[in-house]
Nucleic acid binder design. Sequence first.
DNA 1: AACAAAACTGGAACGTGTTCCCAATTATGC
DNA 2: GCATAATTGGGAACACGTTCCAGTTTTGTT
Lengths: 203, 203
Amino acid sequence: MTIANSSTSDDLGSAAQRERRKRILDATYELARSGGFDAVQMRAVAEQADVALGTLYRYFPSKIHLLVSALGRQFEDAAGRMHEKEIPGDTPGDRVLWVLKWMARGMQGDPKLTEALTRAFMFADSSVAAEIHVVGMAMTSIVTHAMHGGTPEDGEITDEDVAIARVIGDVWLSALVAWVTGRSTAAETAAHMEKAVHLILRD
Amino acid sequence: MTIANSSTSDDLGSAAQRERRKRILDATYELARSGGFDAVQMRAVAEQADVALGTLYRYFPSKIHLLVSALGRQFEDAAGRMHEKEIPGDTPGDRVLWVLKWMARGMQGDPKLTEALTRAFMFADSSVAAEIHVVGMAMTSIVTHAMHGGTPEDGEITDEDVAIARVIGDVWLSALVAWVTGRSTAAETAAHMEKAVHLILRD
DNA sequence: AACAAAACTGGAACGTGTTCCCAATTATGC
DNA sequence: GCATAATTGGGAACACGTTCCAGTTTTGTT
């Protein structure tokens, strides 16, 4: 149950292809950051990445695949950074809340980007299962890592831990959607998460 | 904190307008039931409801509004039926699980319909806040009603109860999305909900 | 009954995701 | 180095959500 090992640091394809793929994802980020989901238009991505529209579709078979792939890269980066540090907090609940707040801070700094990626994730169907799985694994990994104090040798991660982490991840996703779609404020979201973690991880 | 009182049994408009609105929602259900989200095409809804496309857009300003309104009607119906019966089960956890399974059974009977309504709900932004609120209230009402054994006089519903119900609702939504998008089976979803309810409502 | 306002119809038109086609370019095997 | 296959570029075309408009019907008022 370690960090996902997907093809983020791409094994596949020639150097030129890896370069194209990177340009596409970079263009996606930039458009999403400035204008959110609606601004990530396939023609605009293609133009900014300097590839033809057909090529873009060869690399990512839909807009949803594209955005969820971007989300996966971001989550894996976050999970990687997470694993490099000690998580502050005396109890699992404190540490999980610390991590969730840390991620929330990052997301609030780029609300449009977050909106684009989250809505794509929520809209994805089974054809995006592989990319979705990457995200789910990274999220579970982040939470379980926080539950165990960030000290890698600190005991095994049990099935129970994973189940708990999934539940927390679910609540987090729902809260994220509510925030992203403007149905709740950042403060309400934070309070809601705090409540949920206290319910689930009674210290 | 009783059942939502929105304009489901429509106060607004003439008889002909209520009739049109009903035809539109019926057409929406039928198309969703047979083909899911993608089959609910605005031109098809208009044709099947025997109204002009412009009229459909006058009643529901977007496809998302239309589907979320349909979901709201369904949830209010479910909440209403819920409140008429005693919920079996000795503990809050048992009763909540019973209710969730009862709703899951209904949704599994119409998977395409569920897919259409759920995806619309997840995709809705703040312009759909009113319709979303109807759904959220109905869901919270269903869960709190189950927590208190279905006997209406059985104590007040506290803020704490509502907070708990919201968390359960969040997990349920995430699980629903996973099921609807084919990322988890009905059995996995049920097991996951059971785990979550046991964590949140320790009996 | 006559008129004004609002609602409805039918259909054209636009934007964006997606598909398709073919010529030009690049990579691969001999 | 060359023949062949795979990839890419450029762009037209299609589908569906959405908007808009001119004309007609319905509704409401006096």
